[in-house]
Design a protein around this nucleic acid. Structure first.
Lengths: 346, 346
DNA sequence: TTGAAAGCGCTACCAT
DNA sequence: ATGGTAGCGCTTTCAA
């Protein structure tokens, strides 16, 4: 009788359920969440009441009171380029069976948006957070540290990990890709990239290292926009316009490589006869394309799986961090049909 | 001095920020969330304090107290096939500026998992929910209705919408794709599909309608697995093995079409000389491929944008539903290079 | 413009 | 096994 009539439709709460079952709220709570702690009789009464009232637990309140949200946060720079498909799948494979929800936010390859995403995520109180990349803003780092939850940085190797770090050397991988072309005899090896995020830049460093080593000339075209198939064709066009002698090209990712391949087909260039192409990431399309694309396979599934398992271990187990805080998972060069020895081209 | 020392690392709360800024919690709250209600002086002090402490608002508490979560839920059947990229982007474009968070859950093209996703989502109290597809389980429908929030079903036209429905006729679109091939003179028109979700089946219905109309023979191969480029090649292989006379093929989506195209290149078939290919969705790759892929463009961005705007109107505005509860956005056949008139083949 | 107090719905802690 | 009570961190009246 004390409540003034509100216009908002009342929601059924645990209080209502408890009242109907004629037990205390605590018992009702336990009957629903930890049935083994409640006598069979009361348990049934509570369940019946909950059912009759179509009770929906308010996870917000539950999380606030228990300080456990049952979710982990993931921040990736893109959802649309295929790179993070395996990565997210691995995380789901680990967490869904553990009854932990995976929240994904997209930073769009922009440090500013990543910071915002991290703060937003932290506001949801995930029990751990997985980050793609290692270049968080100082403010984001601080917030992450204060959160006191496991933080796993992935995809790259960090000099100063925030907490745990599982990745690979993007520079070494870029070097390996370029080196593959030089090893095949190419000397006019171009490079195209988009976008110019930190990992791309490191792969470019690797390329430059190989260029230096083989005494070649750097030939690069790039654009700081989301990678796309179309831009692969366009960047290749620009590269060839500037350096017509190019006989091989290292594309910063497989989307660009696919676009470059299509552009070659459009121009009637043979691949690898007239131009060798190596991509990066080993997306599904790389193996399926015709010719199939040589590329660098990065262990994205494994990386995310390991991240997930370490997190699970920490939040379900002792709460203690593993002794090994940094893991290098390496990469693999996959030589397919799109790269070949320097032949009768020029 | 009254708190017993706890082991848990204290988190920075609004209380701490208020204390540091020497204002009340209420003022701190307002300074952060509704700055215009607070004097410039205090506003600055609060902001400075919040920044210095790396304060992260607890959205759980905020949502619990205000009964507004500031988020909307979206459930899509896949995150990996590119189809929902524009769709999600549109939703972000609408909601992020409105300061509403977009939560995305993946149903993996499985009604059971969609039901679970819907229930999970509802437990987070989104202020509205956007669904891809119209075939929710009865239980999910009921829960959705009881939630009392705007529900928008998209991608298809529903006979009995739950609430609001924005889509297109998948059957008509499938018919248009097949019809395009028949109109070019083809009579041996095959069809490949994967996965066999409700929309795929409707597109197949459209194909069958065209087949009937032209007195042709249905030639279909499909598999109920996630679509992939590789399966496009495999399904085409099976189709050709069974019906070698095939001169044209309607692929249930662009991934399959791309795979089919690569398979043709592998076999040395000319496209469209030996085989015409039409896809579905108009993903980025369709325009970039060589030859470019004819396909059906579905208005995914527009569909999601409209959904978002209607929701915004409802939850920000009067709370009243628009008069028009169902919108048909149609589709467009895009004839590119991969389809041509029946020539000197077979 | 600012603040005090009363919850939001639930769970943890401590009794019984 | 069951229940009372005190919050979780924030926003909302309502008063000053």
């Amino acid at each position: 009788m004390k409540k003034p009539p509100k216009s908002r439709p009342k929601r059924v709460t645990l209080h209502d359920v408890a009242a109907r079952a004629r037990v205390s709220m605590v018992t009702a709570s336990r009957a629903l969440r930890r049935p083994e702690m409640v006598s069979l009789d009361l348990r049934d009464r509570v369940n019946a009441a909950a059912r009759a009232l179509a009770y929906v637990p308010n996870q917000l309140a539950s999380a606030l009171a228990s300080r456990r949200t049952g979710r982990i946060g993931v921040i990736v720079p893109s959802l649309t380029n295929g790179v993070f498909n395996d990565y997210l799948r691995a995380l789901h494979d680990v967490f869904v069976p553990a009854d932990i929800q995976v929240l994904v936010l997209n930073s769009h390859y922009m440090p500013g948006r990543e910071e915002k995403a991290i703060l937003t995520m932290l506001g949801q109180f995930p029990e751990a957070i997985v980050l793609a990349g290692i270049e968080q803003t100082p403010h984001a780092r601080k917030a992450l540290q204060q959160a006191g939850i496991p933080v796993v940085q992935t995809m790259e190797l960090a000099a100063k990990p925030i907490d745990i770090n599982i990745g690979l050397s993007q520079q070494d991988a870029g070097y390996a890709a370029a080196r593959h072309l030089f090893d095949l005899g190419h000397r006019h090896v171009g490079q195209i990239s988009a976008p110019l995020d930190s990992r791309s830049l490191k792969r470019i460093d690797g390329y430059l290292q190989a260029v230096r080593e083989f005494g070649a000339t750097p030939m690069m075209v790039s654009v700081d926009l989301p990678s796309s198939i179309a831009s692969g064709g366009e960047l290749l066009g620009e590269l060839l316009a500037r350096w017509p002698s190019t006989t091989a090209i290292f594309c910063g990712n497989d989307n660009l490589a696919l676009g470059a391949l299509f552009e070659c087909q459009r121009r009637g260039f043979g691949v690898p006869r007239d131009l060798s192409i190596v991509g990066f990431n080993d997306l599904e399309v790389a193996a399926s394309a015709c010719p199939s694309l040589s590329t660098i396979a990065t262990p994205r599934y494994e990386m995310a799986r390991r991240a997930g398992e370490i997190i699970l271990e920490i939040i379900r187990g002792s709460g203690r961090r593993p002794k090994q805080r940094q893991i290098d998972l390496g990469f693999r060069l996959i030589a397919r049909e799109s790269t070949g020895e320097l032949g009768n081209s020029s």
